[in-house]
Amino acid sequence: MSRSPARVTLRQLCRLGLPAPLLLPALLPVLRELVPASHAAFFFCDEHGHIANLYAERMLPPRSMAAYHERHDQKRFRERFIQRVAAECPTSRHSVTAAERLEPYYQDVLAPLDIAHMLYAVLRHRGQVIGQLSLYRGGRDDPFGAANEQTLSDVLHYLGEALAVQAQQLTADPRKHVVEEALAVLDDDGEELYADAGWQRIVRLAQASVIAPVGAQKEIQSVPKFVRAILAALTSAPQSAHHVHSAWGEFAFRRHDMASHSGPPAVALIVSRLAAEPVRLATGAAAKGLSPRQREVAVLMAQGHSNQDIAQLMGITTNTAASYVKQIFSRLGVHERNGVAQALMQASST
């Protein structure tokens, strides 16, 4: 198995021990670097295809997701997922045919998300199905090939171990940074006048710890209510950020009043999704251009592991671990272990 930089970063992320909802936003982009795709999603579901939760880099609006549940969930997702579970190979691929483009499912689901080619993987942990990973390409892209399928197969063990970690209460970590932002312009009543492409998805992640087709109908009312509550909280404290925690992580909302000479008053609401230290260390190690082995050692150093710990975790000798530590000090221009963490954190923010 090759040790490409993307594969090393993926392994590092999978070993952080973070709950799956916190891990997925960082994991999917790295996976798409390993297997080129336009976007990806993970569906938490049982062997019968019942979707308990999902994380998608592109997401249908609540109304469309509710319609998907009513029209297509049973036939299109569950039946085909059960077939994938029963198949000998955990991965499969498919490209939309000319006939399928005429079907309602394509018009309701695939076309709005620009999905023409799919690469699937059923993930298991200790023999138990935990869900489906889906990689997507658009109509202008080439179909997934056998090499893409093999590359994905090679990392399924790591993915299954990582995404089986259940949500848990994490200690608050002040050392966080913004990894994505979105903006909406609202009127005095909290009604949307404008929202950018990422607004609805990030707000839905902040609003609920569970996102699934079966609950999408409720989101049609709950999401606007949630936004109005955020707006009210920021109205009473306009100079501060309002922080919200869900299973998907921490989100910060900020308000900016917009002056208007020709129309009604409006407010810009910005939401930021924040990432905690463990993810920053792994992405920072990737940004520094270290060799695959150096990156693994650097992350372990930054997490406070001794040379002996590193040797045991990586299956190398203590002398070899010490040699890597010296190389990392030289490459990062630091002289103590605390400096490694600081250098990786800074690199993740640039």
Score class of each variant (00 low, 15 high):
His48Ala: 14
Ala116Arg: 14
Ala266Trp: 07
Ser38Phe: 07
Lys218Asn: 14
Ile211Tyr: 06
Pro213His: 06
Ala184Arg: 04
Ile115Ser: 07
Met65Asn: 04
Glu47Arg: 08
Glu103Arg: 09
Phe251Ser: 00
Pro238Ser: 15
Ala321Phe: 13
Asp114Trp: 13
Leu290Cys: 12
Glu79Thr: 04
Asp188Ser: 12
Met301Pro: 01
His48Thr: 03
Leu234Lys: 12
Ile316Cys: 05
Glu33Ile: 01
Arg201Trp: 02
Leu31Met: 06
Gly198Thr: 06
Lys288Ser: 15
Ala195Met: 12
Cys14Thr: 08
Glu161Ser: 13
Val297Trp: 03
Gln83Thr: 09
Leu231Gly: 09
Asp108Ala: 00
Pro112Lys: 02
Thr235Lys: 09
Gly138Pro: 02
Ile130Tyr: 06
Glu161Met: 15
Pro61Gly: 07
Met1Asn: 10
Leu18Cys: 06
Pro36Tyr: 09
Gly263Ser: 13
Gln221Pro: 06
Leu54Asn: 07
Gly131Ile: 01
Tyr194Phe: 10
Lys75Ile: 06
Arg337Thr: 15
Phe77Pro: 02
Ser236Met: 13
Val165Cys: 03
Gln169Ile: 10
Pro224Met: 12
Phe43Lys: 00
Asp188Arg: 14
Gly249Trp: 08
Arg71Glu: 00
Ser153Thr: 04
Pro292Tyr: 07
Leu10Arg: 01
Arg124Gln: 15
Val279Leu: 15
Pro224Asn: 01
Ile230Asp: 01
Ala167Asn: 09
Thr350Glu: 14
Gly49Thr: 05
Ala87His: 04
Leu313Lys: 09
Gln312Asp: 13
Leu27Met: 08
Val8Phe: 08
Leu193Gln: 08
Asp108Leu: 00
Val8Asn: 01
Phe42Trp: 08
Ser262Pro: 00
Gly284Phe: 13
Gln12Tyr: 12
Asp309His: 12
Ile310Cys: 02
Val267Lys: 00
Gly131Gln: 03
Asp189Ser: 03
Ile230Trp: 02
Leu22His: 10
Ser134Trp: 11
Leu60Gly: 01
Val334Cys: 10
Ala268Asp: 10
Arg126Pro: 10
His48Tyr: 05
Val214Gly: 15
Ser236Tyr: 11
Val109Thr: 05
Leu205His: 09
Gln221Met: 09
Pro292Arg: 11
Phe144Ala: 02
Ile230Pro: 01
Val185Asn: 12
Pro25Gly: 03
His305Lys: 10
Leu186Phe: 10
Arg255Cys: 10
Arg331Lys: 06
Leu23Gln: 00
Ala241Glu: 10
Pro292Val: 12
His69Tyr: 07
Gln166His: 13
Gly17Glu: 05
Arg254Val: 01
Gly139Ile: 04
Glu219Thr: 06
Phe43Arg: 00
Asp189Met: 00
Tyr55Ser: 09
Pro5Phe: 07
Ala121Ile: 05
Pro90Cys: 07
Met314Ser: 12
Leu119Ala: 13
Arg124Ile: 01
Pro292Leu: 11
Asn53Lys: 11
Ser349Ile: 05
Leu22Val: 15
Ala121Lys: 01
Ser2Asp: 15
Arg331Leu: 10
Met258Gly: 08
Ala87Asn: 04
Asp114Gly: 14
Met258Val: 10
Gln342Glu: 04
Arg228Gln: 14
Asp173Asn: 06
Tyr68Asp: 04
Ala67Met: 11
His94Phe: 15
Pro112Met: 03
Leu344Met: 12
Ala182Leu: 02
Ile220Val: 08
His69Ala: 08
Tyr55Thr: 04
Ala276Thr: 13
